[in-house]
């Protein structure tokens, strides 16, 4: 339960921190940290415009995506606190729930009959398909290392295996999760949310036709997905067994740091050329395999 609430709370600050970082980095005065929240509250008060071409899928997709993200949140633990739902192999459900949300985002884009949104849908489908193996190899490695197959238990046993070099894998895992989060959320270097031209967009172009309530849901879903990955990273780098308040503090610190890193990346890095993206994403799977090799060495299987 604690995990669920903390992730939800962190999600309110997350986009604002990215925004602040970017404005500071580019020397602008920039909006306040709560600007994204204000934007969403405006959206919630507005009416909606629907394209004549769209139908049921377009209307239910944002809700499905948000609920699937909430479902993924239910599976995440916070330190020793078990997740709302914790069972063997919960991370499989986690990955497939996020995929369910993606499925609906993609077909909703196709529902508009727009060539731009079709283009975005095609790209998003391709990129999210390529990133799937990286996450599963990462989790398989955890399962192999700790001997458990549930988020809660894996994270609790990760640091007490008595292996001093486990931090190496922590770092690889954290890096990988951060990168996967960037791909899943369509941020730099795969996609630039601030790009001004439809032709160069991926995620933004898929939601061009949304307005009002549905668009607000999409924004909230994106924030949640950030903090979901942020909390995975937290669980990976902070050992269990510390003081609870310290851990809550650290949780927000990790999330904030993650947001700042995203903000800096987006300030100083250009987006990949579109046809370079598959290579970039496949590299993540390669890094996951490196992590797997590291664990093989740590467990003396490969000496």
């Amino acid at each position: 339960m604690a995990g669920f609430i903390l992730i939800a709370v962190a999600a309110f600050f997350f986009p604002g921190i990215i925004l602040r970082t970017k404005s500071i980095a580019s020397g602008r005065k920039g909006p306040g940290i709560f600007q994204p929240l204000k934007d969403v509250s405006v959206l919630l008060r507005k009416g909606s415009v629907f394209s004549d071409t769209t139908g049921l899928i377009f209307r239910i997709a944002p809700s499905v995506t948000l609920v699937s993200a909430a479902g993924a949140m239910m599976l995440l633990p916070f330190a020793e606190q078990k997740a709302l739902l914790s069972f063997e192999g919960d991370f499989i459900l986690f990955a497939y729930l996020l995929a369910l949300g993606k499925f609906f985002t993609i077909i909703a884009a196709l529902d508009t009959g727009s060539s731009f949104e079709g283009m975005g849908a095609s790209r998003e489908a391709l990129f999210s398909m390529l990133v799937e193996p990286a996450f599963f190899v990462l989790m398989a490695t955890f399962a192999m290392f700790t001997g458990y197959t549930s988020f809660s238990v894996i994270f609790n046993h990760f640091f007490i295996t008595g292996n001093d070099y486990v931090l190496i894998y922590s770092i690889i895992g954290a890096y990988l999760l951060a990168q996967i989060a960037m791909v899943e959320n369509s941020r730099l270097p795969v996609d630039d949310p601030k790009t001004h031209l439809e032709l160069t967009m991926i995620h933004e172009v898929m939601i061009l036709d949304y307005s009002g309530f549905d668009k607000a849901l999409i924004h909230i879903g994106t924030w949640l997905k950030f903090t979901i990955y942020g909390s995975l990273i937290y669980n990976l780098v902070v050992p269990a067994g510390w003081n609870l308040f310290l851990k809550i503090g650290l949780f927000f610190a990790v999330q904030a740091l993650f947001a700042v890193v995203i903000g800096f990346t987006e300030s100083f890095r250009a987006r990949n050329k579109m046809n370079k993206n598959p290579k970039f994403i496949l590299t993540l799977s390669a890094i996951a395999l490196i992590g797997f090799t590291v664990i093989l060495i740590l467990t003396d299987k490969l000496a």
Partner: peptide, 30 residues
């Protein structure tokens, strides 16, 4: 086993690509 896990994950991702395409192109849009 890890190779199989990666392959099965890839199959899952590709299946999503395949069926969003089929459903989206046939039933959605104009």
């Amino acid at each position: 086993i890890v190779g199989s896990v990666a392959a099965l994950a890839l199959i899952g991702g590709l299946a999503i690509f395949c069926f969003t395409r089929a459903f989206g192109i046939v039933f959605l849009g104009e």
